[in-house]
Design a protein around this nucleic acid. Sequence first.
DNA 1: TTCTCCATTGCATTCGGATGCACTCGGTTC
DNA 2: GAACCGAGTGCATCCGAATGCAATGGAGAA
Lengths: 323, 323
Amino acid sequence: MAQVTSYDVATRAGVSQSAVSRAFSENGKVSAATRARILEAARELGYQPNLLARSLITGRTNMVAVLASQTTGRYYPEVVQYLADALDRGGKKMLLFFTDGRIERVDEVLNEVSRFQVDGIITSTQFAPDRRELIRGLKTPMVLFNRQDPVDEFKSVTCDQNRGAAALTSALLNAGRRRIAILGGSPDNYVARHRLYGSIDALGSAHVGTVDGDFSYECGIARARELWALQPDAIMCMNDSMAMGVMDGLSDLGVQTPTDVWVTGFDGTASGRLKRYDLTTLIQPLDDMVSLTCSALDALMNGADCTSQVLQGQLHVGRSAPL
Amino acid sequence: MAQVTSYDVATRAGVSQSAVSRAFSENGKVSAATRARILEAARELGYQPNLLARSLITGRTNMVAVLASQTTGRYYPEVVQYLADALDRGGKKMLLFFTDGRIERVDEVLNEVSRFQVDGIITSTQFAPDRRELIRGLKTPMVLFNRQDPVDEFKSVTCDQNRGAAALTSALLNAGRRRIAILGGSPDNYVARHRLYGSIDALGSAHVGTVDGDFSYECGIARARELWALQPDAIMCMNDSMAMGVMDGLSDLGVQTPTDVWVTGFDGTASGRLKRYDLTTLIQPLDDMVSLTCSALDALMNGADCTSQVLQGQLHVGRSAPL
DNA sequence: TTCTCCATTGCATTCGGATGCACTCGGTTC
DNA sequence: GAACCGAGTGCATCCGAATGCAATGGAGAA
């Protein structure tokens, strides 16, 4: 306790509390001499302004809430890291909330978020349409990350999952693949659904079947036999982790990639680039997505408008499907 | 704006502001009837208590700062995820700070941390001895994660790097390996140093040389030739990512693992368990480390004492070094 | 020299909620 | 019937910093 306050600094520097306050804000009107004296006194006392007290007046906390759902994939931890970094560059700190996927948690989390008075929200968590009113009520700027609002009331930055899946698919078709199986992600996951739709639409009659998955490496291994039973010449996995799992599951069955069957992933994670997997995959432009998300949020926080952005992923050809 | 305050709720419920405040705290003295009336009014208005205003009085923010340094490895993102989850269970939120490793950033970050009035700090970032006074001045409970304070003034939860390295080493020696090379991590990194010392001490004359690394997969690939030139029968890499890199770099030279040489990692990351690498490694008990860290911090935040904990890693034998 | 004008500075108030203290009132206890 | 008790409630104040407004004083203009 015994927190050092602006009054302590004021006393020490022989000025008033308001002078101290002004010395610590860019546009505060103080003479250079007093400011120097105040900063010196502050240094001696180890004073740091209390941002919470400040925010009570200014209405700004410099905190941004990031809502992420725990996932089995290797993608989100990367996203969190990138976001924290990008926010930091904008002088914001990241307050992290995990929604464990259960829908009822979303309400709870949103209430918590609002209690912390964050300046903005970045969410990669799904919310049901009837939460719309609740979110609107928060009056906190929000940007969806790789999720879209059907009516675009809440702006978003996404990687075009449909088109990415379609691009990957046509590349396979152009390379002569005709029997293509799919390993899907959890059906309640936004990106999983859109990747799946995009693939199926583009595949047409080349689609020999879909097997359900959960985005994990282990599930890729477990589903390999079932996929192989469909006699595919290529297997499209809806994320990288599962693709690696499928490759390994197939190996156990004596089936080699790419000799016997091609395998593709989706995401462009670091693990997918490991030489022993070297996945053909669709790379989501994480860097751009993150910086666009932050600038969109910045715009909203400054009362400006912003539009939803849809970025295109980049096809990466590895040895798992040598297009 | 137009924030809903406790006064609004009070007016609507026909009570005083203090009654509202009491209705929202467990041990507030209010009759069941009034509380119900207040909660109802609050619900209608969409009121959520302002935690920042509250913290101004109570001195508690329910926020814990986590300081992490950006690293090239795959380990930290996992740690952050685990920590956020564990903190959440204790009703705390995680405010994330990245120190990009540069020492001068540490001061800056610590000052920022103190401005946010967090209840506690968990750090996996190194700080120089002369920062001790600065941190003491914050008076904020702090627990070091996988870092140790030489004089144990600041408590820590660590995995015994020395002993883990020694265990890994003796296992190799017992299995008959006699020419062991080491791929080290960045020398300014705490865990890298201790793993290295532990290994070298235990190796004795079986040590045929050390090559410097930076914890990244790419560096593992790049250093493979140099390591192989030492004519080792086993290569100990100071983390999993580098071990995978070394295996791949050796493959490119026509050297196979484990036939021609054994390779070991350190950490026990998810990627290390991928079947095509299947690393022999030392698994750090992440779950336990995280929960001990949180309970230690809890103790400190409640004014209690706590002692530093040193956990032992677990040797995991994979095919990269079939002990 | 006297009057403006502007740059500094201090005073008082405010943000939203917690809390010590005093007060009310229905129910006990002699 | 008087003194007492305690649960429920409101009043006033406080936490730490920001800010509108008024006061001060020195420089420059007339």
